[in-house]
Structure formats: C-alpha cells, structure tokens
Design a protein around this nucleic acid. Structure first.
Length: 584
RNA sequence: UGGGGAAUAGUUCAACGGUAGAACAUCGGACUCUGACUCCGAGAAUCUAGGUUCGAAUCCUAGUUCCCCAGCCA
C-alpha cells in the first residue's frame, strides 16, 4: 500500500449499482467464482431493474447432426445462467426442416446434453409443438395485410431480392387481397400445391439495407415426413418465423444465440411486435467457439462422417461430444474449459492447448495410475533367478494415499518402452543406454550390459543386471539414478491395442470450404503390440487411467474380453520431446 | 459500393474516465521413484491518427483491418 494514494471514487448511479450487484451476487452466487461476462451482466441488470422477474433460457438445437464442443459453449451458457440466477433452461428442438432431421440425432442430443452434466427436467419442447399456433399467427398476419402468398419461382424471388448494395423490388403478388391470400395459404396447408410452388412471405420492406427484412419467407411447402408430426403438415415455418415465437410461447426472457443471427434480430423483434405473443423475449448474440486444428461446423462434420474420413460421429478424433466422450474426455473438463474461454462478441480461435490443459488438470486428479508399454522392447535380467518372480507394490495415485495400491508382478523377463533405450544417447538423454543404470518404477535399479540385435542390426533385446538391494526402488547406499522408467512383466502382462490420436487436421487453421485438403493423414496411429499390466485387462469400466509417463487413456468399446483396446485421451506434457525434438 | 458486428500480450478473456491484470502457451529455475504434477521467476498487449480531460483501452472525430448477411437451411 502506497502512502498518499488516493482513489477517486465514482459517486452517483454507479456506486448504487455496485452495491446492488453485490446484493445480487449474494442472492445468486455463481457455483464457482463470480464468472461474469456481458450476457450475465445484462441478465443481472434486467433482474435489478425489475425489467425481468425471472430468467428463462433455452438451448435450441436443430436435430440434424451431433452436438460438438461449440454447442457445449452454448449449453453451458444457457443452462449455467439459468442455474446461477435461479431460473430454468429449456431444451427445445428447432425442428422446422423435416428434410434434414432424424430421430437418431434427437436421441444423440439428449444423451450428450445429459452427459455434459445438464438436465432440462420437464422442460423439453419442440418448435413442432407450436405448429398449430404458428399457423394461426400466420393467418393473423395475412388478415392484417402483413403477409402474402407469393407465386414467384425461387429464381425469380432471388432476382427480385436485389443484392447487398442494391434494393430489391416488390413481387407482382405482393398486393394480393386478404381473401385470396387466406384461400391460397389454406390450400398450401391442405397439400394442394407441389414443393416450391408458393411461399408465404412477410410484407416488410424490399428496399431494406437488412436483407432479412426484404419480405422474408414464413412458410414453404414441403411434402416430407417429420420425425414428430409425420405427414400431418405440408407446409413448414421458417427458422425466423418459428424461433422468436417459440421463445415467446415458452416465456424465454433471454434468447442467446451466435453472432451470425445478429441481423436477424430486427426480424425477430418485428414478429414479437406484430403478433399477439404471450411474452416479450429478447435476443442476445455471442461469438461462437472456434478451436485450432479442428472445424466446428455441422456441415463439415457430417461430410467427415459420410465421406468415411472418420469412423463415425463418435470417432475419438471428432470434436463432437460423442467423440470426446469416447476419447475419454471428462465432461467436467469441458465445462471447465468453457468457463475459462469466456464469452464475448469478438470472433476468436481458441488454442487447442487450452482444452488439453483442462483435460489434463481434471484427469491428473482423478485418474488412477497404471503401467503400460506401448512399443515393447524385451529386457532380460541376467542375474535374476530363472523361473522365479515376485510382487512389488505400486501406488494407485501419488497424490492420494486413499486411492490405495496394487501389486505388480516382477520377473526375469520384462518389457520396457522402446523409446526409453538409445544405443547412442545424446547428452541430455538420461534413460537406458549401454552401461547406464536406471530405476524401474516401484521395483529395482537395473543396468544395461548388452544389446541383442537382429540381422537388420536393430536392437531386439537388452541384457541387464539388477541390484537386489534396491528393491522397492531405493538404493540403501543413497546412490541416485537420473531416470525412472515404466515397465511390465513379460509373462504377467496382457497384450492390448492402443490407439493414439493426433489432430484431425494438419493445419491450425483448416479451410472449411476445402477441408479434405487439410486432413491430417497421421491423425490415427494404432499400436497392436502394446502390453498392459493385468489390472487393466479385466475391467469393463471405461474410467480414465493414466499410463505412467505416457498420458491418459480410456478403454474403448471395441475391447473384447481377451483383448482390451485403449484410446489415448491426451498425452502428458512432455518436456523431453521438446528438448529432443522428437514428437510422438 | 448497402446493412449489421468486432478490434487489449502468441492465444482467450478482464479492466465499465483513475496503477493495463489473469489463464493458456513460451522461456528459465526449484522439487521429483512419472522429463508428469507442484512451486518460483521472466519476457510479452491497448488497430492508426487527431481531439476532449488533471488523467483515455474506456469519451468524441476521421480512418484501417477482420467477421456476418443476397436459402423456400438453422
């Protein structure tokens, strides 16, 4: 604290607000930390000022694909705000386009939102729940002379819409009488006309600088089966005509969406003002999530799946929630990540390293430690008695004694990691090399005496000696080794398949328009000869584990009882790889 | 050349006329039976030019750059 320091406090309305904010915070304490952003500020002020008595939000996916981590940002925002301010959040399907939607996606969305850790309780809705009401409102608009049936072809409509810099021109059908409009619209509903024959349009302003206001389409004819309403409807409302009104019906107070809808807001408001809706929702926009080395676009993700570039929506390389789940990413890590990146209106690309940090941070605390050797190199302990073996004790978690310990079989023949041996080690390499002594974790110090090579000159086996006095991993004479290495017993270990994942795209900034060119050919590496300690073999659980010194892994559903398959969720930070320049 | 938005360390987000701060990343160091974790430290930013003000990232003016919009997609 400095002497003579004076802070000129701001009197007037601000300080009053500051006190009120404190009060609000007491009343609605955020779960962990104050977590604030411009949207939460708006919500707070609305509650303070009395403009709103309560907060109701909604997460409104269209069931035309799987949810990805970008949706997680929206889910955490909408459900999070509702929770923090004592309101509720609806799950609402924006199911207004039956040609793109399916039950598979509906099921996947519910599974994924639940998995992420949110619950809509009874508040599950569909835009299709409101089709009848929306239709009635459309007729209201027609009666008020604010909507008309347009017979123009799609091409003619496009031509008459004008361009970004030139105004559009009125449709020749714009001034049709109310009776004729009503008759035509009802016949559209009854299925009398073919797809594309006519549309219902709002009569707003063909010269507006905002193209969304140039007589937007309210209804189009679609003879298609809807996952929920079947063949009942032959016409379907557009997004613009359905969304705000659905919000109003549900009593949504804060309708939070992404930036690209910013210039739909005037249209959103136009409907709210011109229709007898039961409430007055407002729309707010935030910047969607972008991540380096991936593409968060349903279109691209769909093509990745359909084009066979990945094994499915839940391929562990996919940024989908299903993919992240299969990859072994804990939902809590995703929530933490979303909290860290914040919410703002500036377009941004978040470094994938931030996601990885959240994942590691969570897994470090929760994942039991195990030993596994990905690329085995055989080690024979020459001075270890033939035909004998013993058990050593290994802690399940170094920072959590309550996690207990397990016993691991040690014997004359072992496997170590191929990367942990170098015949001609560089200076900073302090693992195993000819003549060097290292510790086998929880077991003994061993020294490499001899290499066995095959005809090609490759090292296929190491002949070592151990120091029986170092049992448990400590030398009674106090001598130190520079490396501690993981290992498994040759006999008492289980063969496993391990799948290593690298970024799906080779560039930090892949081109969504031509994504195939940027796909990383080495995004998946399958190791078929891995060996894991037996404790890992039997378990059905897909709980995350740490393979010591390697990374966090989880059991893949492709596992069989005799052959487990593990996915690498994320590697450990690897300072050595940086120093040596050898990635893996 | 229309309309709507956004510009702060490498990245993401704070700072709401009064000391530009955090996290991730990067680089050092300590510790270590995981080259992990943890701990300590360092470098690193207000788009530009004017103006208002005792004082500007914040207000004003003019510019620059980037993003979105011309589906009967959402």
């Amino acid at each position: 604290m400095k002497d003579g320091k004076r802070i000129i406090t701001c009197h007037g309305p601000r300080s009053i607000y500051a006190r009120l904010f404190d009060k609000i915070r007491e009343q609605w304490p955020a779960e962990s930390g104050p977590g604030s952003d411009f949207i939460r500020d708006i919500v707070q002020e609305d509650l303070l000022s009395g403009r709103r008595k309560t907060v109701v939000t909604r997460f409104p996916p269209e069931p035309n694909g799987y949810l990805h981590i970008g949706h997680a940002k929206s889910i955490c925002l909408n459900f999070g705000i509702a929770e923090e301010f004592g309101g509720h959040c609806n799950l609402r399907y924006d199911d207004t386009n039956p040609t793109k939607e399916s039950q598979e996606y509906i099921d996947a969305i519910e599974r994924d939102v639940h998995w992420l850790g949110f619950d809509w309780d009874k508040n599950l809705f569909h835009a299709s729940d409101y089709f009848e009401q929306l239709y009635a409102w459309a007729e209201d608009l027609i009666r008020a002379g604010k909507a008309y049936v347009d017979d123009q072809t799609q091409e003619a409509m496009r031509a008459a819409r004008g361009t970004l810099t030139e105004p559009g021109s009125n449709s020749p059908f714009r001034d049709r009488g109310v009776a004729e409009n009503l008759d035509l619209f009802r016949r559209m509903r009854s299925g009398e006309f073919a797809n594309g024959a006519r549309v219902l349009r709002a009569k707003i302003d063909m010269a507006s600088g905002n193209i969304n206001l140039r007589d937007p389409v309210l209804y189009r004819i679609l003879h298609a089966e809807h996952p929920r309403t079947g063949m009942t409807w032959k016409i379907y409302p557009s997004y613009d005509f359905a969304h705000g009104q659905s919000d109003a019906i549900e009593g949504i107070t804060h309708s939070i969406c992404t930036l690209e809808f910013e210039d739909h807001r005037p249209l959103y408001d136009w409907f709210i003002q011109n229709l007898p809706v039961p409430s007055q929702p407002h729309q707010y926009e935030f910047a969607r999530l972008n991540l380096t080395y991936t593409i968060l676009s349903k279109r691209v993700l769909t093509e990745l799946v359909r084009g066979g570039h990945v094994s499915g929506w839940d391929d562990p390389r996919m940024p989908t929630l299903a993919g992240l789940r299969r990859r072994g990413v804990p939902p809590a890590a995703i929530r933490d990540f979303v909290k860290r990146i914040g919410v703002a209106k500036a377009n941004s690309v978040v470094d994938m390293a931030m996601l990885e940090f959240s994942i590691r941070e969570h897994l470090n605390k929760t994942a039991p430690r195990r030993m596994a050797v990905l690329r085995p190199l055989k080690v024979v302990i020459e001075n270890y008695p033939q035909g004998q073996s013993e058990e050593v004790e290994a802690a399940n978690h170094p920072e959590d004694a309550a996690a207990g310990a397990r016993r691991i079989r040690f014997g004359r023949e072992l496997f170590i990691e191929r990367d942990d041996f170098m015949e001609n080690p560089p200076k900073k390499f302090f693992r195993l090399s000819p003549g060097a002594e290292v510790r086998l974790r929880y077991a003994y110090f061993i020294t490499c005496r001899e290499m066995v090579k095959n005809a090609a000159g490759e090292v296929v086996e190491l002949r070592c000696t151990y120091d029986p006095a170092t049992r448990g991993g400590n030398a009674p004479d106090g001598r130190k080794v520079k490396a501690t290495m993981h290992w498994v017993s040759a006999d008492a270990s289980v063969p496993a398949e391990v799948r290593l994942y690298n970024p799906l795209f080779a560039r930090a900034d892949p081109d969504a328009a031509n994504f195939a060119a940027d796909i990383n050919p080495n995004s998946l590496e399958v190791l078929r000869d891995a060996r894991v300690e037996p404790a890992l073999a039997g378990r059905d659980s897909n709980h995350a584990v740490q393979f010591e010194r390697l990374g966090y892994f989880c059991r893949d559903p492709d596992s069989t009882s005799e052959r487990p398959v593990f996915n690498r969720t994320v590697g450990l930070r690897d300072t050595w790889a940086k120093v040596s320049g050898s990635g893996s």
